[in-house]
Write a protein that binds this DNA or RNA. Structure first.
Lengths: 218, 218
DNA sequence: TAGATTGTTAATCGATTAACAATC
DNA sequence: TAGATTGTTAATCGATTAACAATC
């Protein structure tokens, strides 16, 4: 049996949240219909790319008319799995972890940080947003009850690999890693590394390039 | 006169910080020499890709030997412009802004958040890491003195575009945007959008995909 | 010299774009 | 019907990979 290709290319997947964001803004503005040209413009891509991206999801519009904003918004939200509430587990109740727990944007999209963990006894019992801070060694036990499948790592670099291992043992297979170190994804898991220092370094690269150009009269 | 291509492709630029991170770890471990195969393995890329990336920077190793760790580390740091200290200006002294100001990783790489800004009178005068929180309307005046060229936006979505405009007016042309909205980069500026909700949405996409597969016995 | 590894070329792969027949 | 816009095909573009002559 031939299995149809199930997943869109990663560049497409990464653009979907932007499309959804634009569509929700249009919904809020009571816009009923949008063409690929208009939405692509809002999202900063070409119309052809936008239509191609939708084709991977099997989403169709109406030739000559465009796309129904509410319907398209719901379809993309569906593809992203944004149905109901997803409970998330966070390890590392430092400043960044605390900021993430209090982040209002997550709740709006259906993500709730249900529990936080830390090794620092001073932090245990604190409340961060919805989450209470638990001792790190209770992760396995507590997630047996919560059943979170998405985890956020917000610990120092040295602790990251161990935390990922423990998460995987607890059944968490989709992980967002803010620790400033690459974590190789264990078999069958998806790890997205978000390294804030890397982003500044990339900016610094382009700044250096531009300033060398300046200096040499370019 | 033929101008040689000055910039590496973006995918290459984005990998450079990872290479540097691996090299610094090797330096700390007193490793003198590394082959492209070894480093590529640490960084999670292929050896050919690593060598190709270096070729864009004009960095050369020794055939039959490999690369001198210290020298290569310094070369990549140089390409990234990590020489001396870069002062950075931050707007938005909320939880995320405060976490960024206190982030130890920045200082180690030569980035210092020199001043923070907010519109909330209650926050003015607070100290976040090295930075003092100033009233937002003083940005232009204060940066005339500080001369920061890199800025970080950590305000709500509705305020982001205005903040970017003000930054550009103050001479800041390299911007890291944490506001949950795309900001079109004004002419001559580089804006990198880091949307934390987007990252969770992408994880959710892959989770949904995997769980559908499960359900249908895939 | 023999063995190892680079730097680069050419082949491959995959994503983006342009164009247009199909459709409302 | 005429005008507009989609969905998709084929062409283009650019990045990745494999292979190997050059080099230490």
């Amino acid at each position: 049996m031939i299995t149809p290709k199930r997943t869109a290319p990663e560049p497409t997947v990464v653009r979907l949240p932007t499309y959804l964001q634009c569509l929700r803004r249009l919904e809020a503005a009571k816009v009923a219909t949008v063409s690929s040209a208009e939405l692509a413009d809002l999202a900063g891509v070409t119309a052809a790319q936008f239509r191609k991206d939708l084709s991977y999801l099997g989403i169709r519009g109406r030739p000559g008319v465009g796309y129904d904003v509410q319907q398209l918004s719901a379809s993309i939200a569906g593809a992203l799995g944004l149905t109901g509430m997803h409970s998330i587990l966070l390890v590392g109740a430092g400043r960044l972890g605390a900021a993430l727990c209090a982040y209002p944007g997550f709740e709006q999209l259906g993500f709730r940080i249900a529990a936080a963990f830390d090794t620092d006894p001073a932090k245990i019992g604190q409340r961060l947003g919805n989450a209470e801070v638990h001792p790190a060694h209770e992760l396995l036990k507590i997630n047996a009850r919560l059943g979170c499948r998405i985890g956020i790592v917000a610990v120092p670099a040295t602790a990251a690999a161990g935390v990922v291992d423990e998460m995987v043992r607890a059944g968490i297979r989709w992980i967002l890693n803010f620790a400033p170190t690459r974590v190789p994804a264990p078999e069958g898991t998806v790890v997205r590394d978000v390294d804030l220092t890397h982003e500044l370094e990339v900016l610094s690269y382009y700044m250096t390039l531009a300033c060398q150009g300046e200096a040499s009269g370019q």
